[in-house]
Structure formats: C-alpha cells, structure tokens
Simulated scan of single mutants.
Amino acid sequence: MNELHTFLATVWFVLLGIIIALYVLLEGCDLGVSILSLLAYKPALRHQLREYSGRTGQANELWLVLAGGVLFGAFPTAYTLILHTLYIPLILLLGGLLMRRAGFASGSLLAAVAQGLILGELMGSMSGGLTPFTLVVSLGVVSGYALLGASSLLNHPHGSIKTLAKRWAMAFAVGALATLVTVLLWIPAIHPYLSTRWQHPATVVLLGGLLLAVLLVSIALLRSLRGHGRYSPLKWSLTLFLLTFTGLAASLYPDIIPGHLGLEQAAASSKTLIFMSFGVGLLLPLLLAYNGFQYLLFNKSSEQKN
C-alpha cells in the first residue's frame, strides 16, 4: 500500500508540475508583452503592445485555477501550509490578475512579481516575509516573462516594435540568466541537506544533464538574438523555461516544499488520488481544446489585421 501511495503521489506531483509549466509557457508571452508595454515611450506604441497581449489570457489562466484545484485535492497539507503562510503574495497575485482583466498593464507586472515571491518562498524558508532570496527569484521571474514577451515580439510586423523587442530580449535574457545562476548557487546555502541529496549518482547524472542542456540552450538563445542560430529566440526562450522548471522539480523531489513537507506526507489518501484521476483526466482534454480554439481565433484575428 505504501508503494502504491508513493507511486500515486509522484504521478500527481508530475501532473501538477506539467499543469504549472503549461500555464507559464502559454501565459508567459502575454504577461511579458504586457510588462514591456510599461517600458514603451510612446502612447501609440504602448497601445499596440497592449492590443497584442491578453488575447488568450482567459484560457491560459484556467491552468492556474486547475493547478490550485489539484494542489487542494492531491496535496491538502501543502495547500493549507501555502495558504496560511503565503496569503499576502497570493492576494497580490489575485489582485494583479484582476487588474489585468480590467486592462491595466501594471496588473501583469504585479502578477509576475507575486508569482516570483511565491516561488521564492516555496524554494526558500517559507517565512511569509520578504527576504533577499525571494526578491532575487521575483526579479528572475519578471525578467523571464519579459524575455518571453520580447522574443514573441520579434515576429511582430511593425519594424519599430521589432527593433525595440530585440534590445529588450537581449537585456532581459542576460538578467534572467544572471538570476538563474544566482538562485542555483544560493539554494544549497538555504537547504544544506540538498547538497547531500544531489550527490547521489542518479541525481548527479540527471541534474548534470539538465545543467548542460540549460547551458547549451542559453548559448543558442544569445546567438539567436544576435542574428545567428537555427531556431528563433522564442523557441529557445520557451525551451530554457521548460528545462529550468524541470531541473527545479527534479532537484527538490521527493519534497513538495523543501525543508517542510515531503511528497508522501503532503499527499491525500490513495483512494482520493485515484478518484481525482477520473475528473482531471476528463478535464485536461477540454482545457487543451479550449486553449487551441483561443489561439486559433487569435491567429486568424492577427492575419486579418495584417
């Protein structure tokens, strides 16, 4: 029974990670473009950028709602601890999303900052307050979203926007990579036990491979921003996000909240996890279809305008 429970908890941990990754990858460009509109120096340019973003936000945010539902059902202990400790950044996240739905670009920045604070707390001390580590992680999240937004704007038909986007993409790529390196070096100091865990042969191979992949993708991203390379900067940026997220999850496993909760300790009963599989199994295809429909409408609308 314990083996079954461990297996089910791991499956739901992976599924939760996939759902969050889908939200980040699908929503990242929209959030990034909206954040970049705050840097635009001309009102007309700001208007164009805001028109370009937010077309698929409603569909993308459903993944965030689903992630909250999965956390509540599959890992209720972790859900309670997060809600109790991180209520301020969670309120900021909700406020940012509501501001964004009302058309305020600053809402996207607030949502990104809040997500960074939440991520920083989950990886850090879970103190519930601002720390240098959470601020660095938050800066990295904002830079990462801005990088995705700038990379997507490189395909924009207007030359002035593409020129600005290239400048922004290079600046935020450097910022995102710098904060990534800083966080990787900082985590073992916060959780010393992770250093021992990372020395396990299987973990060394996995994390070593991921780090090598991150390094190669980072080089390819910077080369593509200089006009070299085989693929577009957006593809490399999305790949970098995915590799970073995978590496983070793999390095923290089998903890769901490092230093506070292990996966089995946080998971619901095996019967609950099995029952949830049917509901989420039916919901996932519907969400994917809805997302696909939204992006199809967005592409058709963009083609008509161009």
Rank of each mutant, 00 (worst) to 15 (best):
P76L: 05
Q265M: 08
S251W: 00
V113H: 02
A78N: 01
L135W: 01
L97N: 01
A250I: 01
K305Y: 00
L15G: 10
F278V: 12
A266S: 10
L243H: 05
P285C: 10
L180I: 03
R197Y: 02
E3F: 09
D30P: 07
H5W: 02
L194G: 05
Q48A: 15
L184A: 15
L92Y: 07
V11S: 10
G159Y: 05
L45T: 14
T182W: 15
Y231K: 14
L62F: 00
L98H: 13
L288P: 02
F133S: 06
L16W: 07
Q58N: 10
Y52T: 15
A189M: 14
F75L: 09
T163S: 13
P285S: 12
L26M: 11
V181M: 12
D30A: 15
G281M: 07
L110W: 03
V113Q: 01
L25G: 00
F245I: 08
M276K: 00
L15E: 10
I161Q: 03
E61F: 13
I35W: 07
A178M: 14
T77W: 03
G54M: 14
I190H: 14
L110Y: 03
V141P: 04
H158Y: 07
V204G: 00
T134M: 04
G32R: 04
I20E: 05
E264I: 10
F245P: 01
V205E: 00
S127V: 12
K166A: 11
Q58E: 10
Q199K: 09
L64A: 08
L154Q: 14
Q304P: 00
F172M: 12
A9D: 04
L39P: 02
G229Q: 11
W198Q: 06
E3Y: 12
I256V: 10
L66P: 03
L216H: 09
S269Q: 06
A189K: 12
T10E: 06
W12Y: 11
I19G: 06
N60G: 13
P43M: 12
G144K: 05
F241K: 01
L238I: 14
L185C: 11
I187Y: 02
I257D: 03
L15D: 06
L71W: 01
T134W: 01
A176K: 07
A176C: 09
A111D: 08
L45E: 15
E61T: 05
M123Q: 12
G32T: 08
A146P: 09
G32D: 07
L71Y: 00
I18L: 13
L164T: 03
R101M: 13
L86H: 02
P89T: 02
A150N: 05
D255E: 14
R101A: 14
Y79C: 02
